[in-house]
Amino acid sequence: MKTRYSFGGDEHIFVECDEEMSLQAFFKGLSITNGVRDSRIKGVTEICPANASFQIKFNPDEIAPDDLLAELKRIEETASKSVASLKTRIIEIPVLYNDPWTHETLMRFRERHQDPSSTDIEYAARINDLGTVDNFIKAHSGAPWFVSMVGFVAGLPFLYQMAERAKQIEVPKYLRPRTDTPKLTVGHGGCFGCIYSVRGAGGYQMFGVTPMPIYDPTQTISYLKDFMVLFRPGDIVKWKPIDREEYDQTVAAVEAGKFQPRIRDVSFALDEFEKDIDGYNRKLQEALYGH
């Protein structure tokens, strides 16, 4: 894993922790960005962690680009010794798989897809050797997912499946991006899952939709009153497959201000997770559903 630094114009430093995705690369980025935050470097205006990389926005009138670069390399050295763990949350997200809205949308954009004769979820089930859509849903909703980046559009989480690499779902993006994606679509591209926080363009395969808003610029939804964006990097997500009846009930409960998402505080340690992935995931689930 070799860190690569590059300037993004005169206002950004782009830092790639690794070319390929892994939780090690994510944690390397997290520990460096935490170090940058703690160092309170003059001229640093924004710190944006991503999956296996991060970006620092700075004001070159306040710090010379090369001075900031040297400072980051110094922080990288210290940060590489830190333990990959964090105190975080596990959040249950209900999903109606194979819903009518993403189905209508994927049919409209069929000519932009690798396999126009099947749906996105059928295609993903087949190329991941899962056989049936039911098996695919079981695989997708079985292990929890790690929020390794928030962005693209407001509050959209990128989700990394907490499973050994051979079991991780991988799908290509659409051949050409769609101009439309329903709000709250559960999508997937490369090895990453996501939830589209708003309606708009998108290139990820579409598997379902959640009734639970994750972004509310009006800040009227009960659990988004304090801040309009639900997710932060490091959060853990557990999908819960639901049927249409529960979907409709949840939508109504959100509108009535009565819906409270299931969220529990947990801690996550990368080395323990990697020692026994299934066992660790079971413990996370107990934390979510236990008392």
Binding site: E11, D18, E20, A50, F158, P172, G190, C191
Partner: peptide, 21 residues
């Protein structure tokens, strides 16, 4: 292709985009 990037040669593991990039 690096793991997680996707198969197209223009794909990368999803990363931050600088303004003006």
């Amino acid at each position: 292709p690096p793991f997680g990037a996707g198969s197209d040669p223009s794909n990368i593991v999803d990363a931050c985009y600088p303004y003006g990039s």
